[in-house]
């Protein structure tokens, strides 16, 4: 059930990779089993050029205007935003917790850095997620190989630069294996200053 690959239109600026936007929402009381997660996640569309990116992105609700427990995901085409996907199973993610009111701006900056190939880590980046929650919002960027410290450090340093984070911002890394084990995306993380 893979959708047809998109390609850049005439005169458009191609991206290094095609990306797919996804949206998910769940009732917080329901347990987040991987099956219910997959049922609650929807593809919005794919983009292959800068212009296609803006056409799609400009029509989406800003994440800061979403209510409840919802997420936007932007992943390389062909990679599902799930821990179990082949591209993700040995990977992990950097987590940045945001106070309310910052999600829209930080989400835009992180995805512009991703589609513009600012991270310089080869094929390592899988996608980015903004998670709207009740007390705080959470930004994360997923990479393929959680035990490659050169890569994860470079991603962390690029995040600091492109998001203009203060040097004392707490950043947390969590492997998808650990997320699977405790069935939680954001608990029991490894803190890095």
């Amino acid at each position: 059930n893979r959708r047809k690959m998109v390609s850049p239109g005439v005169g458009e600026h191609p991206l290094q990779y095609n990306y797919t936007f996804w949206y998910s929402r769940r009732t917080p009381s329901r347990p987040a089993s991987s099956q219910s997660y997959e049922q609650n996640i929807r593809q919005i569309g794919s983009v292959a050029s800068v212009e296609q990116f803006w056409r799609l992105y400009s029509h989406l609700v800003r994440p800061g205007d979403l209510s409840g427990h919802s997420d936007f995901h932007l992943f390389k085409e062909g990679i599902k935003p799930m821990w179990e996907d082949d591209s993700n199973r040995n990977g992990g993610k950097w987590i940045i917790r945001l106070r309310k009111g910052l999600a829209s701006r930080f989400w835009e900056n992180i995805i512009l850095a991703m589609v513009g190939e600012q991270f310089m880590v080869g094929e390592e980046i899988c996608g980015a997620v903004v998670s709207i929650r009740f007390q705080e919002d959470i930004l994360s960027i997923w990479n393929r190989t959680s035990n490659d410290q050169t890569t994860t450090s470079r991603i962390r340093d690029t995040l600091r630069r492109v998001l203009n984070l203060p040097t004392n911002t707490i950043m947390e890394y969590k492997t998808h294996n650990d997320s699977l084990r405790d069935n939680s995306s954001f608990r029991n993380t490894k803190i890095s200053l």
Partner: peptide
Amino acid sequence: GTRIIYDRKFLLGCRSSPLAK
């Protein structure tokens, strides 16, 4: 191969292009 790299300023500039509407 060559990587296609765009900085934020360039990407934001493309937003107003008629092709991006």
